[in-house]
Amino acid sequence: MELTRRDALAALAGAGVVGGGGAAVLARDPFGEAGPDDSPGATTAVLPTLTAAAEVVYPSDLDGIGEFVETYALGRVADRPDDRDGLASAVREVDAAAREWYGAAYADLDRSSRDEVLRELGADAADPDPAGSRAERVRYYVVNELLYALYTSPAGADLVGVGNVVGHAGGTEAYRREP
């Protein structure tokens, strides 16, 4: 199944980013600046790392993940500096763990190793918390951020096969039909 720009824009609308349609925010990269030199993953490119994580947490037969993540992640945090910093920081910590444990950038690892990094960080069992431990922040800003985007988008509705899902403005026709 193909994730489309429409899915990303719909997810963006559900996250309160409207009007600009993503194009305006794509013109500037809010993650462009690397973190402080001594911070974990200071040289991490945030978007490729986040996309690499999405390829793990999204179903395997989804295509178009790169554009979806780019449009959604960029558009969403463009005007939310706290969320942008929280997201970038958590993504950099994922990358730092990959470099330390597997000797390579997270985005360069195979899918199975990327999955393992998230589990070894504790993101599978942690409760999401934007101000919590590393595991809790990774769960909140990386795993749940990506899952929220997908499962409140038209693609999420299609994957589940129901026509509209909570959190997505999918209209008032689907609820009347047999799923």
Partner: peptide, 29 residues
């Protein structure tokens, strides 16, 4: 909002990837 809708299951379940989609299909609907 706290009912087991697809997004709530996705954020609560602990699984991800194909396993999560299976879990949503099992638990929702």
């Amino acid at each position: 909002v706290r009912a087991p809708s697809p997004v709530r299951i996705a954020l609560d379940d602990g699984a991800w990837g194909d396993r999560l989609l299976d879990r949503i299909r099992e638990r929702y609907g």
